Computed example of a mutant assay.
Amino acid sequence: MYVREADGERAVGQYPGATPEEALAYYTRKFTELEGQVGLLEQRLRGGAPAQDVAKAVAALAPSIPTANAVGDLQGLAERLGRLSATLGEATEKQSAQTQQAIADALAEREAIVAEAETLAAQDLSKAQWKQLSGQLDALFARWQAAQHATPRIPKKDGDELWRRFRAARSTIESGRKAFFAELDSVHRDARTRKQSLVERAEALASRGADAIPDYRRLLDDWKAAGRAGKKVDDALWARFKAAGDVLYGAKAEADAIEDVEFSANLEKKLALLAEAEPLLTATDRGAARTALSAIQRRWDEIGKVPRDQVRVIEDRLRKVETAVRKLEDDHWNRTDPEKQARSQGFAEKLAQAIAKAEDELAAAKKAGDKAGVKKAEESIAAQKAWLDALG
């Protein structure tokens, strides 16, 4: 079997025992395989495969094409491979530039991560919200790990320096966190000790019943000032402290219930007194009203206590009667106050003199035909008489 080339025919092999068509088909397939290898290299380069890897494959394949035992356009195939080889230089430069840019982007990403970590570490860690801060730091570390896997490898020197800075920032934050929680543990221990003592003192009040409530309230003030002992410990101690208070307030509720039963008769008596006192709201005789009210007040005090939930109600009703009687006395005093009467009398005399003067001016204005003067004098007389009427 022969293949025709530019300088003549070249024997490519023998295929004994086969027909010429079968032999030709066999060597044609050999050419097709070579053509497929060239096409694959072209496709790899177009797909973005590293140009250096494609160049190695081209260099390995190129020498075999001119002497290949195959039938086909070997010269054309060699030229295709040559053209592919010619483009590898440009592709290598382009890919190199892309790689350098990708490395620069990766460095910028790592630098941004480190800068954010250093900013977190530079804040006042004594005031940090540790749950939020720890979450932010964990997110930055996750970004760092993702960048390691998703971006090109950065120069070792740069990578080591950036990691050193990131690790230093993380160590600063971790040291601050440990110091904060160590101090918090100390505060919690102190608060726990104080609250444990308060619980024991509150529980010791149980035997005194309702009489111990003022002391319990003082202990409650101390509890509020004791600080936090940690949620679980606080909740457990508070449950005991509250239970101790419930014992005291329960005793007080029982005592109040007993008193309410005892004082219910007193309530009925005071309600009867109110029925007797409330007609004084419309009284006009101040002396009789004062006498009646004094007697009612004396009997009121003698009756004694009423159920607690009724104290305010009945006291307000009695205060209303007392206010009405006091107003009668105040009104009487305002009417009979000698000094006030003297001032009113003097003012009335002045008003009478002013009215007389205005009447003379009115007569003179009428005689002179002075309409404006007449109007002015009439208005003055009307105003003075209104004041005089107001004085009674």
Score class of each variant (00 low, 15 high):
165 R>P: 00
282 T>K: 07
212 A>H: 01
278 E>V: 10
19 T>E: 06
220 L>Y: 05
251 A>F: 03
91 A>S: 05
42 E>L: 04
79 E>C: 07
242 K>T: 06
372 A>S: 08
94 K>R: 14
33 E>L: 13
284 T>V: 12
85 S>V: 09
237 L>M: 01
256 D>E: 13
378 E>Q: 11
191 A>H: 00
148 Q>V: 09
285 D>P: 00
66 P>L: 14
88 L>Y: 01
166 F>L: 06
366 K>I: 15
290 R>H: 07
16 P>F: 03
380 S>A: 11
96 S>W: 04
250 G>R: 03
375 K>T: 10
46 R>C: 03
69 N>V: 12
182 A>K: 10
380 S>C: 15
313 V>P: 12
106 A>T: 08
300 W>M: 07
4 R>I: 12
313 V>I: 13
345 Q>H: 10
196 Q>P: 10
29 R>F: 13
359 E>Y: 14
248 L>Y: 04
6 A>G: 10
30 K>M: 15
334 N>S: 08
179 A>M: 07
163 W>C: 11
54 V>N: 02
129 Q>H: 14
206 A>Y: 04
116 E>M: 02
391 L>P: 11
25 A>N: 12
121 A>Q: 06
78 A>I: 11
293 L>V: 01
237 L>P: 00
218 R>K: 11
107 L>G: 05
225 A>K: 09
81 L>A: 13
292 A>K: 02
333 W>C: 06
270 K>A: 05
261 V>F: 08
382 A>S: 12
128 A>W: 05
196 Q>V: 06
278 E>N: 04
77 L>V: 01
27 Y>E: 04
331 D>A: 08
279 P>W: 04
236 A>E: 08
31 F>G: 05
31 F>D: 03
383 A>S: 08
170 R>F: 06
359 E>S: 11
232 K>E: 11
112 A>Y: 03
8 G>S: 04
369 G>I: 14
156 K>F: 12
318 L>Q: 05
148 Q>N: 08
75 Q>N: 11
59 A>L: 09
7 D>W: 14
56 K>L: 10
33 E>C: 12
177 R>F: 05
371 K>N: 15
216 Y>H: 00
130 W>L: 06
356 A>M: 15
203 E>R: 03
89 G>T: 10
360 D>H: 14
89 G>S: 13
58 V>S: 01
324 A>F: 00
320 K>F: 06
338 P>R: 02
375 K>P: 11
44 R>F: 01
369 G>N: 03
74 L>K: 02
235 D>A: 03
183 E>L: 07
68 A>R: 03
154 I>C: 00
391 L>F: 12
77 L>M: 00
376 K>Q: 08
160 D>Q: 10
70 A>S: 01
371 K>G: 09
213 I>V: 10
146 A>K: 15
29 R>I: 14
374 V>A: 09
37 Q>F: 09
300 W>C: 09
352 A>Q: 15
271 L>T: 13
243 A>Q: 02
334 N>P: 04
164 R>P: 02
122 A>V: 08
54 V>S: 00
200 E>D: 13
159 G>V: 01
249 Y>P: 02
287 G>M: 10
251 A>G: 05
280 L>M: 00
362 L>Y: 11
168 A>V: 07
258 I>E: 13
72 G>E: 03
106 A>Q: 01
66 P>K: 08
153 R>M: 11
10 R>S: 14
154 I>V: 05
197 S>G: 10
51 A>I: 02
19 T>N: 02
64 S>V: 12
124 D>W: 05
301 D>W: 02
176 G>H: 10
303 I>P: 03
297 Q>S: 07
355 I>C: 12
